Simulated assay, not measured.
Amino acid sequence: MNETGLAAGETPGAQTLRRGLAILKLLARSQPDGMRISDIGRRLSLSKATAVRLTQTLVDERFVVHDAASRCYRLGPETFAVGLAAEPSYTLQRLAMVSLRALALETGDWVFFSVVQGFEAICLSRETGDVPIPPDALRVGDRHPLGVGAGGLAILAALPEEEAEAALRANGPFIDKHYPKSPVSVIRPLLRETRERGFAVIPGIVVPHYWALGVPLLRKDGRPVAAIVLVTSEARLHPMRRAVLGERMVRVSRDVMSRAEQEGSV
């Protein structure tokens, strides 16, 4: 984020709003520990004065709270209220939560849940496993293009071929630039394998020595609306366990969607 320059066509007011929202997004990814003002400024490339001014405004409006003991800022009650207003959009994640936690406890691996938004997938939850997780693993609120990661790949494979191709064309330049270990040239063969297998397997491409499995959650019409992802170390995911876990995750996804349909949530 540029401290001084405005984006083309952007007004000072829009820039201020964008910076304030960036602070909220950053704090959402640092829950529950929160962040100090120096870290907020450094992560967003803001001067200390600008970071203090924007963060204090969010405190005044109760979107952020300040812990005097730790000197950290965290999300406040108004952020929670806004989240509750948007809750219907996250009903599926709520329905899946018990199953995701059970899967993480049963396997000892990390389990993530992402929903589809356009040609992107957004991580809504992650359940703790026993194995160490890499520091650059998905956090709640992170988004990535369809095709990247096991969840994005599982969702992409469940789309009609023409739509999947449109997603790759739209996302391709961004993927090739920002995900050099998983460019479109690598995604295409993985996409074919995912369609044949019924679930996605990412063999240590995104994060070395960590593998991931992904399954889509499908509506009755076959439309993917979300994905469940399991991440573990390469040593724990031998072929037999890979197949067993893939089938287990498919059953979980079907069970979640069955309950969602009964509630009229999808």
Rank of each mutant, 00 (worst) to 15 (best):
T4V: 11
L6S: 10
G20V: 03
A22D: 13
A28I: 03
P32N: 14
D33A: 13
G34C: 06
G34P: 04
S38H: 10
D39H: 08
L44H: 09
A49R: 14
A49S: 15
T57E: 15
L58W: 04
V59A: 09
D67Y: 02
S70M: 12
E78Q: 05
A81P: 03
G83M: 12
R94C: 07
M97Y: 10
L100H: 12
L100P: 09
L103T: 08
G108I: 02
F113M: 05
S114T: 11
S114A: 15
Q117H: 13
E120S: 12
S125Q: 12
E127Q: 15
V131G: 03
I133G: 00
R143C: 09
I155K: 00
P160G: 12
E165P: 02
E165F: 04
A167T: 04
A167M: 09
A170M: 07
I187D: 00
E196M: 03
P203Y: 11
G204F: 03
G204L: 00
A212Q: 08
L217D: 00
R219H: 04
G222M: 03
R223E: 11
R223Q: 12
P224H: 13
A226S: 06
A226M: 02
I228M: 09
V231Y: 00
P239C: 10
R241E: 09
R242I: 08
A243P: 00
M249D: 03
R254I: 07
D255A: 15
Q262C: 06
